[in-house]
Design a protein around this nucleic acid. Structure first.
Lengths: 306, 306
DNA sequence: GCTCTTAATCTAAAAAGTCGATACTCTATG
DNA sequence: CATAGAGTATCGACTTTTTAGATTAAGAGC
């Protein structure tokens, strides 16, 4: 049923409240007093209701009145309706508060598995009034969803392809080189990609921003080194790298969570300033910056080195 | 929770409708058109809602807007609320119609068992839009409940002790004499109560108006004839009358339904104009006279001789 | 730069809601 | 039988809310 099919005369909820008071006190003056309005106001409100609803709620006898049986049923329904309305306003208002309400948080797949458990726990502890809903997707998809309002904010790796958002850096995620012991040692000694065989560098497929960031941060210029196989998850990537005796780049948060702990796989921090930035983004038009900042704090403390 | 605890700002339901339209069309002009109001009206209504609910429903960007995630939740709740409100008005309005709505009908115990089955069936057939609720009680109690609005009308035997009601005669219910064959025959031959032994007349207890009406209609003046045992139901009365070889008076509607068909009990119509009037009463202030008249017709046709 | 689209804003008018005073009528009381 | 008291309806003035129409402002597309 569409909204336009509601063609009934909708009653004024305030007036329904008057009706309930009248039912409760069975007395116009007392009911009016309880509603902080004058008796005439309450009287005409009831008349108005009867007129709008085209029904008789009271039987009047100049000095006394009684509710019709229909009136009583209407009162009962009005009670339900007002309870519902009250829940509605309570819900709507609660959300206005600082650090409360639901937050739809997006996160890219090369971050999500390594921070979300900690984040959820820390959030329950530090931001108990926030209901966190999580969604994992690629940066591009997340930014699109963010624009559409399908999510409220997203944790991504910088830089991001669009800049029509506000963002805050959460921390720095250093890259590690992981792979065949010989190859890794050779590279670490020389810091020269020419020490690696052709097609020995394994990466995630291109929809993952980690690939681009790793290539860029690690200054991997020679495309011929990159193996055409591209994994769609870090777990697969590590497996394939080990199996084919190649090398790959892993972010610290993955290494910390044990990704890459595999027979015959050597993991070493990249030398020099080789990292990706992790940050949170939200729409410029959002009014919940303060809440997102709190969330950012929680993430930083729980999962990231500064 | 009392009505006065609803101190939240209650939203204007019409404005919630505008909000739903905006959600549906995602466009102020189209939504306004669908609501048959101007764009400025819809725009300011949404602003007003946000202000009243102290929350942000939309994120605006001068030419476009999106719903906040909170706004979406509010829309969902508003939808529920409006559905509820619509049910409310639909219910309230339906009742205004002629021959529809619920009718709380009272009936005295010396009538109820003999007409209600027929009445309910006839009502379902002839007045299908009336929801009939039945209550059995004594005349005094019914009239009190009628005054209080706990019932809408009542079927009683005339005369009644109060006359501040409107009423309509439904029919005439002749009295029968029932009892020990010898006593009944002796009385019918002489029409003289002196033909009956002392304490041989059994009656219902005094809260039943049948007692008074029978005594009055049958012109039973001599109290010494009346047995001090008084039954509280016609079934008991008949049993006791038979057991003690006495006599009693039964209304025709009871006789027709087989009350008094008992071994050794003779039932004969009283001679002369000996009857009680059956009628329906309602408050003078009630506006549903037409409906009660229809109900009266149904009762008359279904159960009573004119 | 120009036009088109779209939502917000401003102003005036209409509608709805409210109050205080008063009218009306029933009940109680002497 | 008159009178006072109580309780609800009604009236007119006033306030608040809602509305429409014109205008403004800010992108988007050409």
């Amino acid at each position: 049923m569409s909204s336009s099919t509601f063609n009934n005369k909708l009653p004024n909820l305030k007036h329904l409240n008057y009706l309930l008071a009248l039912d409760k006190y069975q007395h116009f003056n007392k009911a009016a007093e309880a509603c902080f309005v004058s008796q005439s106001t309450l009287s005409s409100a009831i008349l108005k209701l009867e007129q709008q609803l085209c029904c008789q709620l009271l039987e009047r006898e100049h000095k006394r009145f009684i509710f019709t049986s229909h009136g009583k049923q209407v009162v009962a329904l009005a009670q339900k309706l007002l309870l519902n309305a009250n829940e509605f306003t309570t819900f709507a208002q609660q959300q206005g508060c600082y650090n409360s309400g639901s937050v739809n948080l997006g996160c890219i797949p090369t971050i999500a598995p390594f921070i979300l458990t900690d984040l959820v726990q820390a959030c329950q502890k530090d931001l108990p009034n926030i209901e966190l809903y999580l969604r994992e997707d690629t940066t591009d998809n997340l930014l699109f969803q963010l624009e559409q309002g399908e999510i409220d904010c997203a944790i991504v790796a910088f830089p991001i392809p669009k800049n029509n958002f506000f963002s805050k850096k959460l921390g720095q995620d250093d890259f590690y080189i992981a792979g065949d012991k010989t190859l890794v040692n050779r590279f670490q000694a020389s810091l020269d990609y020419q020490s690696l065989p052709e097609k020995s560098v394994f990466l995630l497929n291109e929809e993952h921003c980690l690939t681009e960031h790793a290539v860029s941060a690690c200054k991997l210029a020679d495309a011929s080194l990159i193996n055409s196989f591209s994994a769609s998850s870090l777990a697969t990537l590590v497996q394939m790298t080990a199996f084919h005796h190649g090398v790959t780049f892993l972010p610290e948060m993955a290494v910390n969570k044990g990704v890459g702990k595999l027979e015959g796989l050597l993991i070493e921090p990249m030398k020099g300033e080789v990292y990706r930035d992790i940050g949170i983004v939200w729409r410029k038009t959002s009014m919940r910056e303060a809440t997102f900042m709190s969330l950012a704090d929680v993430v930083s403390k729980a999962s990231l080195s500064q």
